[in-house]
Nucleic acid binder design. Structure first.
Lengths: 342, 342
DNA sequence: GAAAGATCCGAAAAGGTTTTCTGAGACGCT
DNA sequence: AGCGTCTCAGAAAACCTTTTCGGATCTTTC
């Protein structure tokens, strides 16, 4: 089916080609195309026409070599399949693409050796900066202070406070989730969440606890840590209902857990949201919209995290470096699984 | 929380720095580091030591400028959120990362203007080639034959048969799915699938039909086209059971549809897989493993598609261009939702 | 008519690397 | 001693663009 044909490529036009066609020197051609003022209008037009006819594109390599800045950045992810990396990556790509910056994508697959390899390769290509995207919010080792270009850590903060990290506000996320449930009139709120080894799980639980404390309340039972799966959501809900059949809201650590929770609630005859409100985390569209009813969830605004990281890297490249961990607020996306008690 | 500090960066070491420190000329330093033979062993070691002390990394811009090849490729996606782009992108990144090729990531967000813009920018950076990743298998407009670098289309083939495209074998996928169900002893097989405007939906249905025909059988009713959602899976299953209560297998156009199908089957008292076998498409781990029972699904081997595209681009850059549409086989990943009839 | 100023163009250097070519020693042979 | 050969080091060109500076031409003014 596929056929082999002769390769036929012509070299891209160079500035001296343009200059020759326009009958001017290379210097004049450059000035004409870059809008410099020392060119007569008529000459400039001739050069522009010539460039058009040759479909000339200035060689960014030569330009970068001369300018010392390449207009490229490295985007270092630890795992592309992780669904948290992708939105961040999109936000960053978006923020850069708007400017004239191109993005090198490197996936270290969670391997420190591979990461080091990629960093070296990127530095060899003289990127102007790096963004390191993690797959969970637990702090990760710094790339080091000796790098010749600025680095911004996104989602997973650096362990070194001298680095700049941009992360979602997990504690605040727990708070606003509970605030929403309280606003719905719920008072007997349980929390079923994932792996206690994840900082995000701990911080969200902490935020939830403190928001309840502010209202003079407490969780129904302790936070139930487990794993990030539907199966755990189902199992934990069964136990919860046995111990506290009067619960009127369940805050879940992820949308997947929430799905498991909803299944068991429904099977046991609890109506959602009339009897029990359910909230998820991550606002994973594919899960929230397919739920019955659609799931209220906390969105971490990961695209914004990516964009903020990109902007921070921009300023760092321009000379204004910041350091420390900067948090961005999350938001509650309300759907059918939560509603005021009637 | 975040603090502002003074920027402090030092220029990366250059080859002439190394040469000066080693007490040789630039030419000799270059030859020493690149393993060229015209250098005495003792001199070479002196240069290597000097390079090490300065942590010298050759400037790839300069190297690319000279060599005419930059060792970079552009990866042009149409939508990053699409879950099909990501595995392809991973495969490609993987295949390139193993060599010394760096990948520019560009997301056109399904916009032709933006795509054109990215192509021009990438050509300005003198990429050695392009991979265009689509979000569905329907043919898409070619970037054109006049590009100065080779292009490979992945997942979404180019409309121009002179281009090279790498796509999963959707017809074959339908065939192997049915073959698996037949091997399980199923004979009354229905097909509930998604948007009929998607070529993938048509081709899979076609493959399923032809595999059944080969066995002297036919689908139970016509393929039921709808949308790619759980809701449609539920609705279609209800209709199906009303018309054909004796169905013993449902082949679904996606894992999401399969989830909906399974929910209604279970609610209506059909055991899976004892009474009815269910198969999905895409092998989306998060859905297949969370199903009850886990879902048998057809995997499109998208990482392999990405890797194959990367390799094809490699050979094209080396001079061996192919053209036409090349298909890669899919595979059935068996789980609990299909089993032999007892 | 000459000096001064304005306007436009081109030569050349810089950026960092690789490669080719030339040259300088060292060594062996007659 | 003279010649050829071999090994190793360096000079210089090439890749492509931008910018600075000097020079050339033309216009204006006294």
């Amino acid at each position: 089916m596929a056929q082999v044909t002769e390769p036929s490529r012509s070299q891209p036009a160079t500035l001296s080609d343009v200059a020759r066609l326009a009958g001017v020197s290379i210097a004049t051609a450059s000035k004409a195309l870059n809008g410099r003022s020392q060119v007569r209008a008529e000459t400039r037009q001739r050069v522009i026409d010539a460039a058009e006819r040759l479909s000339f594109r200035p060689n960014q390599l030569a330009r970068g070599l001369l300018a010392g800045r390449t207009g490229t950045v490295g985007l270092l992810t630890s795992d592309l399949e992780g669904r948290f990396s992708i939105p961040i990556l999109m936000g960053a790509e978006d923020a850069f693409g708007a400017g004239e910056v191109a993005v090198f994508l490197c996936d270290a697959r969670g391997d420190a050796i591979r990461e080091q390899h990629h960093v070296r390769a990127l530095l060899g290509r003289r990127v102007d900066g790096l963004i390191v995207v993690g797959s969970r919010t637990d702090p990760r080792p710094s790339l080091g202070r000796e790098l010749p270009v600025p680095v911004v850590y996104a989602y997973a903060p650096s362990e070194d406070p001298a680095d700049l990290s941009i992360v979602p506000d997990s504690v605040g996320a727990g708070r606003i989730a509970v605030d929403h449930l309280l606003a719905c009139g719920r008072r007997r709120i349980a929390h079923i969440t994932g792996d206690p080894g994840y900082l995000a799980a701990q911080e969200r639980a902490e935020g939830a606890r403190s928001a309840l404390a502010d209202a003079g309340l407490a969780l129904v039972g302790e936070p139930r840590f487990g794993v990030w799966s539907e199966g755990w959501g189902r199992a934990a809900t069964a136990m919860l209902l046995d111990q506290h059949p009067d619960v009127d809201a369940v805050l879940c650590g992820s949308d997947q857990i929430a799905r498991g929770v909803m299944d068991v609630l429904r099977e046991r005859g609890h109506r959602i949201p009339e009897d029990v409100a359910v909230m998820g985390f991550d606002n994973w569209q594919i899960l929230t919209s397919a739920s019955r009813p659609p799931l209220t969830s906390v969105d971490m605004n990961l695209e914004q995290v990516g964009r903020a990281a990109a902007r921070a890297l921009f300023s760092a490249i321009a000379g204004t470096r910041r350091s420390g961990i900067e948090t961005l607020p999350c938001r509650v996306v309300i759907a059918g699984s939560t509603a005021p008690l009637s």
